[in-house]
């Protein structure tokens, strides 16, 4: 990387005190710090576990509940339509593919947006108000490495795992609805494992890696950009949520298009 880019990235964190912050420079500043993860003491285990707990473990109940209901709702809608043509067994396909391809990853992304993006923005915004960001800088510690990387890493681990949980509970939700339209559990399960393939499952889980990166970056960026007062921090948290949802939906559209090119 040449000196000019260095200077510009330096300018991003200089700008943290003002309102002129460029998202591209922010991404640059964070990605520059990625190699530091492999240095001695580069990986901050304590922070990593804290965020794994906050964004991962603590989200399990709500992910379970929401994905279960989502699967059930999808099952009911599918059953209503399939019954017209007497092909109730396709409820299995509809629920299975919708959950694995879209609803599992998207629901987990929405829950993480609410939990993580807003928390990240509020945390960083408050640190900025208290001059903690300046203090980090003068201790010679990069705010990007210290504040963003542990969150990013935790989200990259937590979201795919949550999606696996969401996928399973979504299908269970569909299964219970299946009972009401006379599809026995055994038959539902057999159909599920015959029609769904592992590539579909992995591609669905895989795209949450992109969502995780977007949500973390949007949350942290809005925190760094927040103005230095209580209302500013509140607004930062709100815009973190709005920006994350927007980015996730746009990314999902693009990824779906890309997946369609390879036939999924």
């Amino acid at each position: 990387m040449n000196g000019n880019t260095d200077k510009k990235i330096h300018d991003f964190f200089d700008g943290v005190g003002t309102s002129v912050l460029d998202p591209v420079l922010f991404i640059g500043a964070v990605s520059r710090q990625l190699p530091s993860l492999f240095r001695r003491r580069g990986l901050r285990k304590r922070e990593l576990f804290y965020y794994l707990d906050l964004c991962g473990a603590k989200s399990i109940p709500v992910v379970t509940l929401i994905c279960f209901l989502m699967g059930a709702v999808l099952g009911i809608q599918a059953a209503l339509q399939m019954r017209k043509v007497g092909t109730e067994i396709f409820v299995v396909d509809l629920v299975g593919f919708s959950v694995l391809k879209e609803f599992g990853p998207l629901m987990v992304a929405m829950i993480s947006t609410g939990r993580a993006a807003s928390a990240f923005a509020a945390e960083i915004g408050t640190m900025k108000v208290n001059e903690e960001i300046s203090a980090l800088e003068t201790l010679g510690i990069s705010p990007a490495a210290y504040l963003v990387l542990p969150k990013l890493l935790a989200m990259l681990v937590a979201m795919p795992l949550l999606t696996v949980i969401g996928d399973v509970t979504g299908i269970i939700g569909g299964m219970l609805v299946g009972l009401s339209v006379n599809i026995p559990l055994q038959a539902y399960w057999t159909r599920t494992v015959t029609v769904l393939d592992s590539i579909t499952f992995l591609l669905g889980v895989g795209k949450t890696l992109v969502f995780a990166a977007l949500i973390t970056m949007a949350g942290c960026y809005c925190g760094f950009k927040a103005s230095c007062d209580a209302q500013g921090v509140g607004r930062g948290a709100t815009s973190a949520v709005v920006l994350s949802i927007f980015l996730v939906v746009v990314a999902d559209a693009i990824i779906t298009l890309l997946y369609s090119f390879i036939g999924y």
């Binding site: 000196g3 260095d6 200077k7 990235i9 330096h10 408050t126 640190m127 208290n130 001059e131 903690e132 300046s134 203090a135 800088e137 003068t138 201790l139 010679g140 510690i141 990069s142």
Partner: peptide, 24 residues
């Protein structure tokens, strides 16, 4: 200075802020 040089210079400072700026 480049960011790395700048951090190296900053490491030689001790700074106290008007409000303390402790990590909460």
């Amino acid at each position: 200075a480049t960011p790395e040089e700048r951090r190296a210079i900053m490491r030689g400072f001790g700074v106290t802020y008007q409000g303390g700026a402790l990590f909460g």
